[in-house]
């Protein structure tokens, strides 16, 4: 009797594996940069190109770098939530305007509002490449020593914010 149950048991194991597989997002890749120093950059600020901003300016602070572009559709979904996160004061949010034209980017912020403390312009996407950006929006949490501690690909929904981002930010701020 028992031997007839073996195929059934094997089938159930297979079902469990496939079910787990279905819940995972194949677009999400393990980042090579977690716990590595955040690549430094010095880029012109979007609103005032005469001024620059550098990752090194943020030493001693836990901060969030959000990669966005006016051509990026998922960024539009994420955008309203960023205001909420910014207002909560949990972490300073800076924008990396990735492969975007200045006028388009400014138009986007004019239309939808600007949740960022400031955004920098990465016109040719070189800084994006240093950060391993492959699908905007992407979000990085960088600690006081300038180490990348979290990377999220895709919109930071309230769920992602409260379950993934916020705990990391709070932990890093305690250190």
């Amino acid at each position: 009797m028992f031997r007839y149950l073996i195929p059934l048991a094997l089938f159930l194991v297979l079902v469990v594996f496939l079910a787990i597989g279905l819940t995972r997002n194949p677009q999400e890749l393990p980042s090579a940069l977690i716990n590595k120093p955040a690549p430094d950059f010095r880029l012109p600020q979007l609103k005032d190109p005469a001024k620059t901003f550098s990752a090194a300016d943020m030493r001693g602070k836990v901060w969030m770098l959000n990669v966005w572009a006016s051509w990026c559709i998922a960024c539009r979904d994420e955008h309203p939530f960023l205001f909420r996160y910014a207002q909560s004061g949990a972490v300073p949010i800076y924008g990396l305007n990735y492969k975007d034209y200045r006028e388009n980017a400014l138009g986007w912020l004019g239309e939808l509002g600007d949740p960022y403390l400031l955004s920098v312009t990465d016109l040719d996407g070189r800084v994006g490449m240093d950060y391993g950006v492959y699908g905007a929006p992407e979000t990085y949490i960088i600690d006081k020593r300038g180490t990348i501690r979290l990377k999220h690909v895709g919109p930071v929904t309230p769920d992602v914010w409260s379950k993934e981002v916020l705990p990391v930010v709070q932990e890093l701020n305690r250190q």
Binding site: L29, P30, A32, Y131, Y134
Partner: peptide, 8 residues
């Protein structure tokens, strides 16, 4: 490339 994007 692997430093930035991983082994994938």
């Amino acid at each position: 490339l692997t430093d930035r994007y991983g082994q994938f």
